[in-house]
């Protein structure tokens, strides 16, 4: 129960900060930061979001349980995002040859012919028996 009410002044200062945040995020978009455009936009959005959550939604004055619920939502979204992106990022890493698990060369039978990719013009000729 949000017993303590934020004063009117706080509401209007938060509103002003939100408008400043809006102006900032639009301005930053026009500056070419290359890779850093996304983190900047996210940082401003998070700043505005924490303002709305803490003051407008009274989480600042709410019991500890509300804090846990809010952070649980954030953490679970982060889990989904992080582990999904982890797959897409690491798809192009090619695993190195595991040193110990060599395919056993079968003894007795004829060694595998060294098969070059079609790069060299000579088509791989079967060994003349």
């Amino acid at each position: 129960m949000s017993a303590a009410q934020a004063s009117l002044k706080t509401y209007f200062t938060v509103y002003a900060l939100l408008i400043v945040g809006l102006a900032a995020t639009v301005a930053v978009a026009f500056v070419h930061l290359g890779f850093w455009n996304l983190p900047a936009a996210l940082a401003i959005a998070f700043f505005k979001a924490t303002l709305v959550v803490l003051i407008f939604m009274h989480v600042k004055y709410s019991p500890r349980l509300t804090w846990i619920v809010v952070s649980a939502g954030l953490i679970w979204f982060a889990i989904m995002l992080a582990l999904t992106i982890a797959d897409y990022v690491s798809r192009s890493w090619i695993p190195e040859r595991p040193y110990s698990v060599q395919p056993t060369e079968p003894q007795g039978l004829e060694p595998p012919r060294s098969f070059q990719t079609p790069g060299n013009k000579a088509a791989p000729t079967a060994k003349a028996q």
């Binding site: 989904m80 897409y88 690491s90």
Partner: peptide
């Protein structure tokens, strides 16, 4: 239970490193 879903995708073209985490 929310951290393990990737074991359904081991052969679906998911990267092997993500597979190891899951």
């Amino acid at each position: 239970s929310f951290l393990v879903w990737g074991h359904h995708l081991f052969v679906s073209g998911q990267s092997i490193y993500a597979g190891m985490i899951f």
